[in-house]
């Protein structure tokens, strides 16, 4: 099975499992038909969606496997090329290579992407208790320093710190004073 087929089969399996769990979930939905059952209740559509997903995921797996079989028959004598899976933007790649854990991880998902996710998670967690200004300043500094090129980090550091503080304070005052939105003040409040 080549890497493209594997990926497509994984998609099919994911949707199959998801739809099964989703259909099981429908049994927890209470039904209410005060005017008599005229075909559908609040459980029907989710059940229909789940059923369609199951049918389509099985069809997807079957289609992919059938196609793989056809291609294999065509390329019988050909050696399979290197198994490198990359998405369109080459952000996420999988390659069976040796190297440090970080190097391997970087090939599956960009480290910058993973760290951006971690920073975003921490930012959201701190948003309410710590407050908008401090959490945003922290996020802006951390994310900007992460994204700036290593060799330019030193040059940008002071600017990034000052810009992050300035931007957070300015945004807070614009939104709370002039646009009358509520933003958490947290420990500064």
């Amino acid at each position: 099975m080549n890497s493209d087929t594997k990926r497509e089969v994984q998609i099919g399996i994911f949707f199959l499992v998801l739809a099964t769990a989703y259909i099981i979930g429908t049994f927890g939905i209470s039904t209410f038909t005060p005017f008599g059952n005229r075909g559908l209740d609040s459980r029907s559509i989710p059940q229909l969606i789940g059923l369609l997903v199951i049918i389509l995921s099985i069809a997807h797996i079957a289609q992919v496997l059938l196609r793989e079989k056809q291609v294999k028959a065509l390329l019988e004598n050909e050696q399979e090329a290197d198994t490198l899976v990359c998405d369109e933007d080459e952000v996420a790649c999988i390659q069976p290579v040796k190297g440090t854990i970080i190097e391997r991880l970087d090939r599956v998902f960009s480290i910058k992407l993973l760290l951006s996710f971690v920073y975003l998670t921490l930012y959201i967690a701190a948003y309410q208790p710590v407050g908008f200004i401090i959490s945003s300043t922290g996020f802006l500094i951390a994310e900007s320093l992460l994204l700036v090129k290593k060799e330019e980090r030193k040059r940008w550091r002071t600017f990034i710190i000052l810009f992050s503080i300035g931007a957070s304070v300015l945004i807070y005052f614009i939104f709370t004073r002039y646009l009358t939105l509520f933003l958490p003040s947290g420990i500064l409040g």
Partner: peptide, 27 residues
């Protein structure tokens, strides 16, 4: 098939909350 699966996936998320017509909580 992938297009239809994607649309149904979005519909799954949309069923979270109160149902139309009778307002029954779902998921």
């Amino acid at each position: 098939i992938k297009g239809l699966l994607s649309a149904l996936f979005g519909m799954m998320f949309a069923t979270i909350g109160l149902s139309p017509v009778d307002g029954t909580p779902r998921y």
